[in-house]
Structures are given as C-alpha cells and as structure tokens.
C-alpha cells in the first residue's frame, strides 16, 4: 500500500514538472522580447570573440610574416590584375621559379658534407640527399598543410622558401641514437653475461615533429596502425606535443594571432621511411630542409 502511495506521488510530481515545463515554454514562445534578450545574451560574447579574436586579427595578418622586405599593401592593392591567359602563363613561371629555387638550395647544401632533407609537396615526396645525390626517396602517402600556404602570395612564399630551413627543436617517439651503454667485463665469464641489444629490427611507433626556423613545423607520422603496446608511448608524445603548442586562454585573449604562429605541414610516411629519415638527419642546427610547397 505504501509502495503504491509513493508511485502515485512520483507520478503526480512528474506531471506537475511537465506542466511547469509546458507553461514555461508557452510563456517563452509567447514573449518575443524575452527570446530576443536570450539570444542576445547567448550571442554577444561569441560575437565579440569572433570579431576580436578571429576576423580583425586575420584581416591584418600576413599569411607568411617572415619576409626580409616589407611590402607596401596600398601599392599592391592598386596593381593591375592579370587576365585568364596571363594567369596561366604566370602559373608556369611560378612553377619554374620554385624549381629554380629548389635547385639553387640543393646547390648550396651540396657544398656541405651533411645529409639534408628535401620536402617537395608538389611531387609528394621527401628525399634524403647528400652532396646533391638523392640517397632515399620516400613517398608521402598523405599530407595536410596550413591554409596559410594556400592563400599566401607567391612573392612572400618565394622569399620564405628562398633559403634552406634550419632545425631548431625536435620531438619524437623514437630515439635519435638507440645507444646501449655497457661496462667492460672483468673476465671472460662476465663477458658472456654482458647485456646485448635485441637481435630483431625495431618496431616501435614512429611519430615525430621537427621545428625549423621561420615558423615551419614538420610533423611526420607513420601510416601503419599503432601496436597496442605503443599506445602509452604515443600518448606521452602527444602530451609533450600539446604542451609545446599550448597557449593559455589569457595569452590567446591578449594576442589572438601572434606573428610567430607556426606554419604546420603534416605528412604520413611508411614506418620504414619515417624511421630512416629521422635517424639520418643530423642533430639540431646542422639539419637543413629545402621546402617546395
């Protein structure tokens, strides 16, 4: 009996709540001013943020802000625009200018002894080269670039890529040099017990990020699925990666779009290619990259 009573009271209170809700919505629908005030309240902050944090900074932002020479925007805005036929020819010239830039940079680096990297998005490949000789060509299976490279003016882009990029910082799931340190054994018996490196090829997941000067960030990920035992390693890599790129809300509010915001290029390679390239490129500062977008 008591059980039935409690059910009855629950039903009653639920009906009461539903009635309240119905009344509330009826009242809300009937009052245009209230609806308008509600929408205004919801939208005012996002609208402000859209204007302050997105539209204004983007409108005055230069997609490639690393130019040696300043361009007079007023002059460039009144320049004559090429017609369709001229645009076609211009694109041919642009391709040639990029090729010339590539060859000039290769020539510059061929005079040094270090191994360097060629990232050619137009041909979808990454090449390890030494003294002008490609020693490994890796096919880019997939890539994603910052939209800044797409909307950037060719003049700015050409200046930006005119010199090889130098490596500043790196983060990786694999060791650059997988060193094993052993102390010399005292006798032959101890020598027999010395730790040895595992006699099988490495299989750990290969993800790495290379920070170059002039804001270029190259992110390389392996195409193959990650082994479940490597997920922890990958998680800690992503955590470190996020902490490097992380900006606080306050910093974002003070400067929504800083000039030195990185220009990211993300490529997917086979695990073997990604590993070989990472191990082959010299340590920071000495590692150079020639980039052709």
């Amino acid at each position: 009996m008591a059980h039935e009573d409690s059910d009855e009271s629950k039903r009653f209170s639920s009906n009461k709540d539903q009635n309240h809700l119905k009344l509330f919505f009826k009242w809300f629908v009937a009052h245009r001013k209230i609806q308008f005030s509600f929408l205004l309240m919801v939208g005012i902050l996002p609208l402000f943020l859209l204007i302050y944090g997105v539209l204004i900074p983007v409108s005055i932002f230069k997609p490639i802000p690393y130019n040696k020479t300043e361009v007079n925007d007023t002059i460039s805005s009144v320049l004559t625009k090429p017609n369709k036929e001229q645009v076609k020819k211009l694109y041919e010239i642009i391709a040639k200018e990029k090729k010339l830039n590539l060859q000039r940079n290769r020539l510059k680096l061929a005079q040094q002894d270090s191994i360097y990297l060629l990232l050619n998005l137009a041909d979808s490949n990454i090449i390890l080269e030494v003294k002008g000789l490609p020693i490994r060509t890796a096919r880019i299976l997939d890539f994603e670039t910052s939209k800044r490279l797409v909307v950037a003016d060719h003049e700015d882009l050409l200046q930006w890529i005119s010199d090889p990029f130098s490596l500043k910082q790196e983060l990786s799931t694999i060791l650059k040099i997988p060193i094993l340190v052993v102390d010399a054994p005292k006798d032959t018996a101890e020598a027999a017990r010395l730790p040895r490196k595992p006699l099988e090829p490495e299989k750990t997941v290969v993800h790495y990020t290379l920070w170059f000067d002039r804001g270029l960030v190259l992110e390389v990920n392996q195409a193959e699925d990650v082994n479940p035992e490597d997920e922890g390693l990958l998680h800690s890599y992503h955590k470190k990666y996020d902490s490097i790129f992380h900006r606080t809300i306050l910093a974002k509010m003070i400067d929504p779009l800083p000039d030195d915001l990185p220009i990211k290029v993300k490529v997917t390679l086979s695990e073997a290619d990604a590993r070989a390239i990472y191990r082959a490129i010299p340590h920071s500062q000495n590692a150079k990259l020639i980039f052709t977008p």
């Binding site: 983007v58 932002f61 997609p63 361009v71 460039s76 320049l79 004559t80 625009k81 090429p82 001229q86 645009v87 211009l90 010239i93 642009i94 797409v150 909307v151 950037a152 003016d153 060719h154 003049e155």
Partner: peptide, 9 residues
C-alpha cells in the same frame, strides 16, 4: 587573403 598574382604580374 587570396592567392593574388598581381604582385608577381
């Protein structure tokens, strides 16, 4: 921002 070719032109 558009990939404007006028400066190159």
């Amino acid at each position: 921002h558009r990939n404007d070719l006028s400066r190159t032109f």
